Amino acid sequence: MVAPVFTNEELEGLRCLPEIGREELFRFFTPTPADVAFESLTAVDILRELNATGAR
């Protein structure tokens, strides 16, 4: 049995939102170069950077 993710009231609220066009989807969900760089970091890279800066 699957539990519902949203209540009926929440679904109605979501249905009231305006439609999103293709250009808006691309603009808001296309990663920036900074996003890509951040996502490519590994845990080892992050720990190495933290150790180099002395962050705790």
Rank of each mutant, 00 (worst) to 15 (best):
M1P: 01
V2Q: 11
V2H: 08
V2R: 08
A3W: 04
P4V: 12
P4F: 09
V5T: 15
F6H: 11
F6Q: 13
F6G: 02
F6M: 10
F6V: 09
T7R: 15
N8F: 05
N8C: 11
E9H: 12
E9M: 11
E9F: 10
E9R: 13
E9T: 15
E9Y: 06
E10F: 01
E10W: 01
E10Q: 15
L11M: 15
E12V: 09
E12L: 12
G13H: 05
G13T: 07
G13L: 07
G13K: 10
L14C: 06
L14W: 10
R15V: 04
R15F: 08
R15Y: 05
R15W: 08
R15L: 13
R15I: 05
R15N: 12
C16W: 04
C16D: 14
P18R: 12
E19R: 14
E19I: 07
E19K: 14
E19S: 12
I20C: 07
I20N: 03
G21L: 08
G21I: 02
R22H: 12
E23N: 13
E23L: 11
E23M: 11
E24D: 15
E24L: 14
E24N: 14
E24I: 10
L25I: 15
L25S: 07
L25G: 09
L25E: 09
L25F: 11
F26T: 07
F26N: 14
F26Q: 15
R27L: 11
R27H: 08
R27N: 11
R27T: 11
F28K: 09
F28T: 08
F28M: 06
F29R: 07
F29Y: 12
T30M: 10
T30L: 08
P31M: 05
P31T: 06
P31E: 03
T32S: 14
T32G: 02
T32H: 05
T32D: 04
T32I: 04
A34F: 03
A34T: 02
D35L: 03
D35M: 05
V36A: 02
V36M: 02
A37K: 13
F38D: 04
F38R: 05
F38E: 08
F38H: 07
F38M: 10
E39K: 02
E39M: 03
S40G: 09
S40A: 14
S40P: 02
S40W: 00
L41S: 00
L41V: 00
L41I: 00
L41C: 07
L41A: 00
T42N: 01
T42D: 05
A43Y: 01
A43V: 08
A43P: 00
A43Q: 04
A43M: 08
V44M: 01
V44S: 05
V44E: 09
V44N: 01
V44H: 06
V44I: 03
V44Y: 01
D45P: 00
D45C: 03
I46N: 00
L47H: 02
L47Q: 09
L47A: 04
L47S: 04
L47P: 00
R48N: 03
R48W: 03
R48A: 06
R48S: 03
E49K: 10
L50R: 06
N51A: 13
N51Q: 06
N51L: 09
A52G: 01
A52M: 03
T53Y: 04
T53K: 11
T53R: 06
T53H: 05
T53V: 13
T53A: 09
G54A: 03
A55K: 10
A55F: 12
R56V: 11
